[in-house]
Amino acid sequence: MPLANPPAPQITRTRSAVTASNVWRAYGSGEAQVVALRDVSVQFASGAFTAIMGPSGSGKSTLMHCLAGLDTTDRGTVHIGDTALTGLGDKALTKLRRDKIGFIFQQFNLLPTLTAEENILLPASIAGVKADPEWVARIIATLDLSERLTHKPTELSGGQQQRVACARALATRPEVVFADEPTGNLDTRSSGEVLRFLRRSVDDFGQTIVMVTHDPGAAAYADRVVFLADGQIVEDLHRPTADSVIDTMRGFENRVPLAGEAR
């Protein structure tokens, strides 16, 4: 029973792509203050697929935003590779996101004015560099998008749009891809396609992926699931299955009965 296992020791055998150490993050002040992250320390191994789970308000999105350089931390440090994010200005953070991070959003967030191919090449265009054509072609083939390259987002289905977004996130070979509820807006079939691709990009291309999700089925595709509740890491599950994830969730719902309602 995974639940019976003690928390796994920190993975030290591989290099860590993203590291958070003693991160605190609070919003508002005084009575209205909400502490989103309390002293969170976590490492994400390079070339691994990690899911972050937790009920609404557990701080999982905040954690991802802090890791991706979109939000600042109150205390503690975040490293992407060897770069410390703490204390970086907007310019440096922007450059870091551009060069080292890929994003996949729940709402796809493709530019409606650009074709699928232009959307895929968007991060490279923003950086003013040329994407590796062989690499891009390989991703496009893997995602089965070759027929759709000249289409505008409005001409694509939700699943196709999210596959374009996946290709976009990987096109510049970022150090880490952050996926925020990537299957939240998709039907089961499209979700499967997207998750299988994310799995393959880790297995075949050695991509590092951190995914926020509330779907145990999606989390089951990951190598490891980190559970958050009330701004703290409460479980760390390796080699999860859908069932073990659901069991874990039930388990800590029992231990922390009100966590699900916490806002």
Binding site: K91, T94, F105, L122
Partner: peptide, 16 residues
């Protein structure tokens, strides 16, 4: 707004 946020998240600078 959302689109601009996405572009900025992906590394578009303020100048751009």
């Amino acid at each position: 707004t959302r689109e601009l946020g996405m572009l900025r998240a992906m590394g578009m600078t303020r100048g751009q």
